[in-house]
């Protein structure tokens, strides 16, 4: 008799999935946002193929609305791993007339990313896009497979997913189709932080408490940055905040927090009564917001 810890078992499962990707696909790519989940996926990929380099490039879909810290972190990590970085720019998609910028107070480039992402997948002929999505994040994601098939339009068909049994992953597809692969499907937010703590994985400083100009909208603190148009009466205040998730600035909620270390973040998450996506404006648009975005080819 012996015991395997949950972090060891989750890590082994994720590494198994990443190695299946390397074995079954010709041109995989890691979708790298600079958030903790894609950081963990990249760390796992590094471990999975060591002492070889990660056999996939990283793809950053850049909305242009990034926190400066995210970009600095990304560039340092790429250099350290000796990885290849591909940047697909939403601004380029706007300039090329592929998408139209939203206007108004809640304008976000979040939705526009889908077109930029699908264009990049087509341009570089990526056949597997590896993401950091987790099933505990959101109800539509709770139903998604590790190997998630996308048709030639990049769309997900939630009602017609391939059964996924044991640890056998079927990555077979026709020309023009691709897969999204989610190696950390079974991880929770707590698992991710515990793992970052245990493995001493560096994360962007945004996750720790810092002072920032912020304003309150619909009960959610947002960063006072030029890319979010403030309504009359939305007053900027200096606050001690941290990010619980990191994405595009326009849809990243800030948490009032004094957590200054991984230990404190883990304690804070254990005590919190709101999910991490509770602060994401993109999910609040409708009951099935995530399912709808996923169907059309979102991350």
């Amino acid at each position: 008799m012996y015991t395997i810890t949950h972090l060891n078992e989750l890590e082994s499962e994720s590494i198994y999935v990443l190695r299946e990707v390397a074995a079954q696909f010709e041109r995989p790519v890691i979708l790298f946002s600079g958030g903790k989940d894609s950081i963990v996926v990249t760390h796992l990929a590094h471990k999975a193929f060591y002492p070889s380099r990660i056999p996939f490039p990283l793809l950053h879909v850049d909305t242009g609305h990034n926190f400066q810290e995210t970009i600095e972190y990304r560039d340092a990590l790429v250099k350290q791993l000796g990885a290849t970085l591909v940047v697909a720019s939403v601004q380029d998609s706007i300039n090329a007339g592929r998408v139209k910028e939203e206007t108004g107070y809640s304008a976000s480039r979040n939705k526009l990313q889908t077109t930029t992402l699908l264009d990049a997948i087509e341009k570089y002929k990526f056949d597997a896009a590896i993401g950091g999505a987790r099933r505990d994040e959101e109800k539509a994601r709770a139903k998604e497979r590790f190997f998630s098939h996308r048709d030639e339009f990049g769309q997900w068909d939630p009602k017609n997913q391939r059964p996924e049994l044991w640890n056998i992953f079927n990555g077979k597809k026709n020309m023009g189709e691709h897969f999204r692969v989610f190696p950390i499907s079974n991880w929770t937010e707590m698992d991710v932080w515990q793992y970052i703590y245990k493995e001493r994985v560096p994360v962007p400083s945004l996750y720790f408490t810092h002072e920032r100009d912020a304003f309150l909208r619909d009960g959610q603190w947002l960063a006072a940055e030029p890319c979010i148009k403030r309504k009359p009466g939305e007053i900027v205040q200096r606050k001690k905040v941290r990010c619980r998730t990191i994405g595009d600035i326009t849809c990243t909620g800030l948490t009032l927090s004094k957590a200054n270390s991984l230990e404190e973040i883990i304690d804070e998450i254990a005590a919190t009564r709101v999910t991490e996506r509770g602060g994401r404006a993109d999910d609040k648009r409708s009951e099935n917001a995530m399912e709808d975005r996923k169907i059309s080819g979102y991350f």
Partner: peptide, 12 residues
């Protein structure tokens, strides 16, 4: 107990 004490749970 600190939450970081729970790093070695089993998974069922």
């Amino acid at each position: 107990m600190k939450q970081t004490g729970y790093l070695d749970m089993e998974l069922l």
